[in-house]
């Protein structure tokens, strides 16, 4: 996440060119201080242990193949660049999408696995700050994102596409913005970047990124809602409404 907000200073065109492979949402090694690293690691390890337990219980011996391919799916989805309104491009972070599709525990586990592989094999995000990255995107992005989505969906209409769409879009946007805010605070508290610089820079950039995230999450979910609603973690009880096809005719 850290490398993103340097782009806040560049023009959209430069961002488009520069950001394509580098728009990762990960803090590198050496950016967080000892107390912040330790604290976030402790929380992250607790989350991983709980998620493993729940997933093992719910999925039994399906856990390994299913979680494995789903993690690979999020990994692949994160590589896809798409244009964001306003001339820049971004890519999916996928926390809320994973939560909506797989549920909070499996979703958080999948995101965690993605981060571990990115940090260990591709040095995308550091090892000492892996706890922070898991906390920001796994716990806040996926777990909190899922419950926000579910709350909004229940209020507007659990079985309607409108409820589904509103819930997912709001959750996707909020989770990205809040995760970036927490990341900025972590960088600030570690005194790597002054707080009054980190927060506005991260927020401005991620308010935009969040719009892209919400749009792509929404379109992907509309496809699944139309074709295989039974695959959603909370499938609609009966087909009440179906979204208009988003494809141009």
């Amino acid at each position: 996440m850290a490398e993103i907000f340097v782009f806040a200073l560049l023009s959209p065109h430069q961002v488009l060119k520069a950001s394509s492979p580098l728009l990762a949402m990960h803090i590198p090694d050496g950016f967080l201080s000892l107390p912040i690293s330790l604290l976030t690691w402790v929380i992250a390890i607790g989350l991983i242990a709980l998620a493993l337990q729940r997933v093992q219980r719910d999925l039994k011996e399906r856990a390994v193949p299913l979680m494995g391919v789903c993690a690979a799916f999020i990994f692949a989805a994160q590589m896809i660049n798409f244009p964001i309104p306003g001339g820049t491009s971004g890519h999916l972070l996928g926390g809320t999408l994973a939560g909506v599709l797989l549920g909070p525990w499996a979703g958080a586990l999948v995101m965690t696995v993605v981060f571990i592989v990115q940090a260990t094999l591709f040095q995308d995000g550091g090892l000492t700050v892996l706890g922070a990255n898991i906390l920001n995107m796994g716990l806040i992005g996926t777990f909190a994102g899922y419950y926000l989505y579910k709350a909004v969906r229940s209020v507007i209409g659990f079985n309607t596409w409108r409820g589904m769409a509103t819930g997912a879009a709001i959750a996707a946007w909020v989770s990205v913005v809040v995760a970036s805010l927490v990341c900025a605070v972590q960088l600030g508290l570690s005194e790597t970047v002054p707080l009054q610089v980190a927060i506005p820079a991260m927020l401005i950039w991620h308010v935009l990124i969040g719009i892209g995230e919400a749009m792509i999450t929404l379109i992907a979910l509309s496809y699944i809602w139309r074709t295989r609603p039974d695959l959603l973690y909370d499938p609609p009880h009966q087909r009440v409404s179906s979204p208009r096809s988003l494809l141009p005719r």
């Binding site: 011996e61 399906r62 193949p65 299913l66 494995g68 391919v69 789903c70 690979a72 799916f73 692949a76 989805a77 896809i80 798409f82 244009p83 999916l92 999408l97 599709l101 749009m215 792509i216 999450t217 929404l218 379109i219 992907a220 979910l221 509309s222 496809y223 699944i224 074709t227 295989r228 695959l231 988003l246 494809l247 141009p248």
Partner: peptide, 26 residues
Amino acid sequence: RWQRLIMGNMIGSLFIRTYERGDRIH
């Protein structure tokens, strides 16, 4: 606009394929 729609649909379709693939692997 099209690109976004196609990409989003692709991600949706990729998930369905992934989930089914997971079942087959299982």
